[in-house]
Nucleic acid binder design. Structure first.
Length: 565
RNA sequence: GCGGGUGUAACUCAGUGGUAGAGUACCACGUUGCCAACGUGGUUGUCGUGGGUUCGAUCCCCAUCACCCGCUCCA
């Protein structure tokens, strides 16, 4: 639907779902506030997740598709954690991006994505770069060489290519170290990163015609820095967490020792995270402060593939059960190239947002098989991929670059007398993205006749009743004959039962229905003339617009039953 | 970060070098009474923010912030 996003943003503002942060001061890029209805919607999303993960989990039964019974517990950890957490997790290095701009094309590149090779022709020597990877990159560089020296394809041999293939020295400007080391496994056979010996003046940028158009790489820190204690200084530097997951990993032993969880088990957490995104975009989809719903599932390495399959399917179904249509939601396995170096497998759950190109999707959740990377990192220190799997990254002196805690985070199975480091399956969902997806999915415009029988456009949010901010609205048909009083009694009865209820006696009845449609209220109760005689009210369904009569005494149970569906 | 566009009432938008309007919304009263009714009356803006030019700026100029689109990025 055209402009759906604009209409939705407008509706969110108008009816109090979401506002720009600090709006009266002109707003703040990448930050959003939830209004009175938005906070209810988002709470319901988080609550649905928490209920599914923790509250409703039956640890005595084997859920369909699961290998065996398991335990689930929740925690809530601090936003600021020991700085060493982020050094060992890899975020500290990885979230330092170095970017270089091309003065000619105005394009920006991640500096460590630029790879290239020296090319010489007669007395000219140029370091030709590409931002493409794999064989494409090599072909690109070769073609650029021909173009640059004005040669034909059959003259390709006249170019002399530099022999520096592997082991390019890290770029050393501004104390920068290449965060993903150039290892023999790197698929860019024959290409190497730009090193400080390649004077930038000799570098041909990937899309430039002239040589030497790249700026010095500049640092982008994707973690928010803060200071612990009143005095600023490096010793007090800490970071706002860029993910909630580390809270689970560092508390793995605490939970294990204190809660009598039965292995295997999951630890779940819902909470805020912060990433200093370069380009926040698309309403709340990519923001700098956001809320995550993450669960770390600890299991035996041998069973981890089954658990991975179980969780990716279960999480996908969660969205379907709450009303996302399957043709808008895909479960996409990461390609080998996309996989983080520690991950055995990762699948994204992605939704076709209105702002996505046809055929493309926006990520709601990643379900990752993380192996034993996280627990080992916090035992041994920051890990990286070596020839024989993960190994502790060492600095020039041969000691660990970032030391781990040294604490034993292995698990001992009493039954099998086996000690092992559990593997981790991580479903990590974005609460704000998910909330936005539910809103997008719910947004509908349809044609309904008005009082005179003329068709009018109706905006309706077809939210799942469990997610709707308001579950039921109570109206007196008119403001007399005792109707407001009866309606108020029903309203209070519903509120007392813990049901989010609205009361509205303002304006014509049709208008009141439409107001509720627009905010997604699934049911409306109307007290009318017959109520006084029959002790019944009408209940009207948001989507079908059908009405039926129910007894006032049954109202609460009826609504509860509908919400439980 | 680059390029283009936008910024006026709660929302959608019009408008002018002489400090602003429409529709919707909202409120009150009356009438009506089951799907955006009608009548009457009413409320709301530092015209995104800060400078400059000018006798005077919402309008022109500069800067800045935010949003949208494209590129880049999306760890």
């Amino acid at each position: 639907m055209e402009n759906t996003m604009e209409k939705l943003v407008s509706l969110c503002k108008r009816r109090g779902f979401m506002f720009q942060s600090s709006e009266i001061y002109g707003g703040l890029n990448g930050f959003w506030d939830y209004g009175p209805l938005g906070v209810e919607l988002k709470r319901n999303v988080k609550e649905a997740w928490w209920r599914d993960m923790i509250t409703m989990h039956d640890e005595l039964a084997v859920p369909a598709g699961a290998p065996q019974t398991f335990s689930m517990v929740g925690i809530d950890t601090s936003l600021v954690m020991h700085p060493q957490v982020w050094k060992c997790s890899g975020h500290y290095d990885l979230f330092h991006d170095y970017m270089a701009d091309c003065r000619e094309t105005k394009k920006r590149y991640r500096f460590d994505h630029l790879k290239g090779r020296w090319a010489s022709f007669r007395d000219k020597r140029v370091f030709i770069t590409t931002d493409q990877s794999g064989d494409d990159g090599l072909a690109h560089v070769q073609q650029r060489g021909l173009d640059h020296f004005n040669l034909r394809k059959n003259q390709a041999e006249q170019i002399t290519w530099g022999t520096g293939s592997h082991g390019g020295l890290p770029y050393a400007l501004a104390g920068m170290t290449i965060t993903q080391p150039y290892t023999p496994e790197t698929p860019l056979e024959g290409l190497r990163p730009i090193t400080d010996s390649d004077a930038l003046a000799s570098v041909l940028a990937p899309d430039a015609k002239e040589v030497g158009t790249l700026t010095e790489p500049r640092e982008f820190n994707l973690m928010f820095k803060t200071t612990i204690g009143a005095l600023a200084g490096d010793e007090g530097t800490a970071f706002l967490r860029p993910e909630t997951a580390q809270g689970m990993f560092v508390n793995f032993k605490n939970v294990l020792d204190s809660s009598r969880v039965k292995f295997p088990f999951g630890i779940a957490q819902v909470g805020k995270s912060f990433r200093n995104e370069i380009t926040p975009r698309n309403f709340t989809f990519r923001s700098r402060e956001f809320e995550q719903m993450e669960m770390e599932f600890f299991c035996h390495p041998a069973e981890s593939p089954q658990w991975y399959q179980y969780w990716r399917q279960r999480r996908y179904n969660w969205y379907l059960n709450l009303g996302i249509k399957s043709d808008k939601l895909i479960l996409r396995d990461h390609t080998q190239e996309e996989l983080a170096h520690y991950s055995v497998g990762t699948a994204d759950i992605e939704y076709a947002f209105p702002f996505c190109e046809p055929g493309s999707y926006g990520e709601l959740e990643g379900v990752a098989h993380r192996g034993d990377f996280d627990l080992r990192s916090h035992m041994e220190g920051k890990l990286r991929k070596g020839p024989d799997g993960l190994e502790v990254e060492l600095n020039a002196d041969g000691v660990p670059k970032y030391r781990g805690s040294g604490k034993d985070l292995t698990y001992f199975d009493d039954q099998t007398r086996e000690r092992f480091t559990p593997h981790v399956i991580e479903p990590a969902a974005g609460a704000d993205r998910t909330t936005l997806a539910f809103l997008c999915e719910a947004y509908h415009e349809d044609q309904q006749p008005d009082e005179k029988g003329e068709m009018q456009t109706r905006i309706v949010l077809r939210l799942h009743p469990r997610l709707a901010p308001i579950k039921v609205a109570v109206f007196p048909l008119i403001k007399k004959q005792g109707m407001p009083e009866i309606a108020a009694d029903i309203y209070r009865e519903l509120k007392a039962a813990g049901i989010a209820t609205a009361f509205d006696q303002q304006g014509a009845i049709g208008r009141r229905y439409r107001r509720q449609d627009e905010i997604g209220t699934p049911y409306c109760l109307t007290v009318d003339g017959d109520t006084l005689e029959t002790q019944t009210v009408t209940i009207r369904d948001r989507d079908s617009l059908e009405q039926r009569r129910i007894k006032i005494s049954d109202v609460v149970n009826e609504i509860l039953a509908l919400l439980r569906k």
